[in-house]
């Protein structure tokens, strides 16, 4: 049965994000005034924060995952900065121990006696918002393919990498269908690489689609391309989506269209779930 592999320090898995840094990310989400680039940076920082905590033990971070973030816009390259700059896939311990900076933020907590206490907590930041240039999606997927090829060669029996592609627009360097297929055709002995296409939008009238099971009702060729290129959700991901109140079929695909910030967060959560606990 695919997607049943153990995720452990001996057999780590991999998350690769391919994120749109084009100029249009400066525009706000359809709902609200938050810029898409701000929302994306927040969501990625939050994801890495939670992944680091998930892998944390009292002695430090356990390397259950290698993580990469490819940004594409004015450039196509690893979005990590500082000590992680230019690194394509980074063990989660290195990610956790090398944020770009640690912000100090106030946090209110309630003690066991019911007293509200305000204190300062340290919050890691890996990414600031970026919005510049075009949408070279083909080039980004080409880079992703070369990164994943190396990782799979080194981890042929691992739980397959999950690739989460977040974009707000159409490719400006050609049809990415072949490049996306190049990624989803890669596989370990436990299954093919999983690709999730998350389309975020500034269009208040855009039709919102959440993990559709068929191409019926897709508004245009671009949406159909993203749908066709996306992987099917694993049964565990389907169950996770249903537990979150989403109406998904057994053949749901990892694709959302015209997502707002909440749907973006939900899509990341669903697309990065493995059925087995960490070992």
């Amino acid at each position: 049965m695919p997607y049943a592999g153990e995720i452990s320090r001996k057999n780590p898995s991999c998350f690769l994000f391919i994120v749109d840094h084009s100029a249009s990310m400066e525009d706000p989400f359809a709902s609200g005034t938050k810029r898409k680039c701000d929302g994306l940076a927040e969501v990625l920082n939050r994801f890495l924060y939670e992944l680091a905590i998930k892998c944390a033990k009292e002695e430090g971070i356990r390397n259950y995952y290698d993580v990469g973030v490819i940004g594409y816009g004015a450039t196509v390259e690893s979005a990590f900065t500082g000590k992680l700059a230019a690194r394509s896939l980074v063990p989660i311990a290195d990610v956790a121990n090398n944020p770009m900076r640690l912000d100090e933020r106030p946090k209110e907590t309630v003690t066991s006696s019911g007293e509200a206490v305000r204190r300062i907590v340290r919050v890691p930041v890996w990414f600031d918002p970026v919005a510049a240039g075009g949408t070279p999606m083909v080039k980004a997927f080409g880079l992703a393919a070369s990164v994943l090829r190396g990782w799979i060669d080194a981890h042929p029996d691992a739980y397959p990498p999950a690739v989460v592609h977040i974009t707000d627009g159409e490719s400006t360097d050609g049809d990415p269908t072949v490049a996306m297929r190049g990624v989803t055709q890669m596989h370990t002995s436990d299954g093919n690489v999983l690709l999730f296409n998350v389309h975020i939008s500034s269009d208040p009238h855009g039709k919102v689609l959440k993990f559709p099971s068929s191409a019926d009702g897709l508004p245009d060729a671009y949406a159909r391309m993203l749908y066709a290129s996306s992987s099917y959700l694993t049964p565990f991901m389907c169950a996770t989506a249903r537990a979150q109140g989403l109406d998904v079929g057994d053949e749901a695909k990892g694709f959302v269209l015209n997502a707002d910030l909440n749907l973006l967060v939900a899509a990341l959560d669903i697309g990065t779930r493995a059925s087995n606990p960490l070992r």
Binding site: I53, A56, L102, R122, P124
Partner: peptide
């Protein structure tokens, strides 16, 4: 559970260079 929390808080307090993730992890 409260005894566990005290043990963990003491362990964190002894570690002045505790990484940012230890406290939120313990809070879980």
């Amino acid at each position: 559970g409260r005894r566990w929390a005290r043990s963990v808080a003491q362990a964190l307090a002894r570690n002045e260079s505790a990484a940012w993730y230890l406290e939120p992890k313990a809070a879980d």
